[in-house]
């Protein structure tokens, strides 16, 4: 029996190794994969600001705009539907390479009341992290027990893709996402003027797991000595309010987040409340109910860049020749191409 168990163990080890090696072939080659591989492992750039969170952040803040206007280096690590627990572990991977950055954290997903995020969305973040003890912890804590093995070897999740694999699955061209610095926004126009949500003084509790991980991120900021800024993006909250697995009253939640931030001496920028001040026009600056479009993101990025410049001791590298490639990268960015043709005088 010892022989069987020993050989079985070797067999399983070999099998796991092969599964680990072939899994990346089967993972969807999305911009989320591109940006995380680029930002976490491929790029040699150092980022003074890292942008973390969900799709609201993904399409809400453009590092190229911040660079172009303030000379601050940043990267957008946000992925669609990224719950706060996944953000925590992703941030830990980011910090392995980028020491003491200013971490700008989108708080939208604090409103999630489900224990775990949607499989497809959590996969956006977890599937693209390299194998490490941090990834194991992420899988253990961010995914339901019956799914954990699937996250460990994503080929088990995506094996059905064997019949639709393309050349890019065997060698993803990361240059296609390089210039974005992690930012991708839509160019649709929402078309609806938001009916301004009535201000409320109500408070609602931050869901337990969200609070737990927000506290963990704060503890991490002290441990790793980085500055933390909480942000909430403009959004038509009447729609998220109707979602299952979400707090009933987002405005009340963000009031609680504001209290929490104040008591923990962490800045909280509720950009929803500042939308008018920033000049956000919902009909033209939102891609849809939940996400800013390219033009809205430009305005938000300008505002955030200015805020960061004024409140943190961040170096403007624009005159530093070592950062010349950032200027070049900007020329290929989404913002640059749009502003030239459509943006007009107001924002250039």
């Amino acid at each position: 029996m010892k022989k069987l168990i020993t050989k079985g163990f070797i067999f399983v080890l070999l099998l796991f190794t092969i599964l680990g090696l072939i899994s990346p072939i089967f993972v969807y080659k999305t911009q989320h994969m591109g940006k995380l591989k680029e930002g976490l492992y491929l790029s040699d750039d150092q980022y003074d600001v890292v942008l973390m969170g969900s799709s609201h952040m993904n399409g809400g803040v453009d590092p190229n705009v911040i660079w172009n206007q303030y000379g601050i280096t940043s990267f957008n690590y946000a992925t669609g539907g990224q719950p706060i627990d996944a953000t925590y572990y992703l941030l830990k991977d980011v910090l392995k390479k980028h020491k003491n950055p200013v971490v700008v954290l989108d708080v939208f997903y604090l409103g999630m009341t489900n224990q775990y995020g949607e499989r497809g969305l959590v996969s956006n973040a977890l599937d693209n992290m390299k194998f490490s003890s941090n990834k194991l912890n992420a899988i253990w804590n961010c995914t339901p027990p019956e799914d954990r093995f699937l996250y460990l070897f994503p080929v088990l999740k995506y094996h059905f893709r064997w019949s639709s694999l393309e050349a890019k699955d065997f060698g993803f061209d990361y240059s296609s996402v390089y210039y974005n610095k992690g930012f991708v926004a839509g160019t649709e126009k929402y078309g609806k003027s938001i009916s301004k949500w009535e201000d409320t003084e109500n408070r609602t509790e931050i869901p337990a797991k969200s609070l737990e991980y927000l506290n963990k991120i704060i503890a991490l900021s002290k441990e790793e000595n980085f500055k933390l800024v909480l942000v909430n993006m403009p959004c038509d909250y009447s729609e998220p309010n109707q979602q299952d697995g979400w707090v009933d009253d987002c405005e009340a939640l963000f009031n609680t987040v504001a209290d929490f931030a104040e008591s923990n001496k962490i800045p909280f920028l509720d950009l929803y409340d500042k939308a008018e001040e920033i000049g956000i026009d919902f009909a033209n600056d939102m891609n849809n109910a939940g996400h800013l479009n390219l033009w809205g993101a430009y305005k938000i990025s300008s505002y955030l860049g200015k805020y960061l410049k004024q409140n943190y001791n961040l170096t403007d590298y624009r005159d530093n020749s070592a950062y010349a490639n950032w200027d070049e990268d900007y020329q290929y960015s989404q913002a640059a191409s749009i502003t030239k043709d459509d943006f007009g005088k107001d924002f250039c």
């Binding site: 070999l14 099998l15 999740k157 094996h159 059905f160 064997w162």
Partner: peptide
């Protein structure tokens, strides 16, 4: 033997009809 064993299990894993997509 080992090649066949590994290939057999990999065939099941990749070409098997299981998981949420099916």
């Amino acid at each position: 033997r080992w090649t066949v064993y590994l290939a057999a299990v990999l065939i099941l894993i990749i070409f098997g009809t299981y998981g949420s997509e099916y």
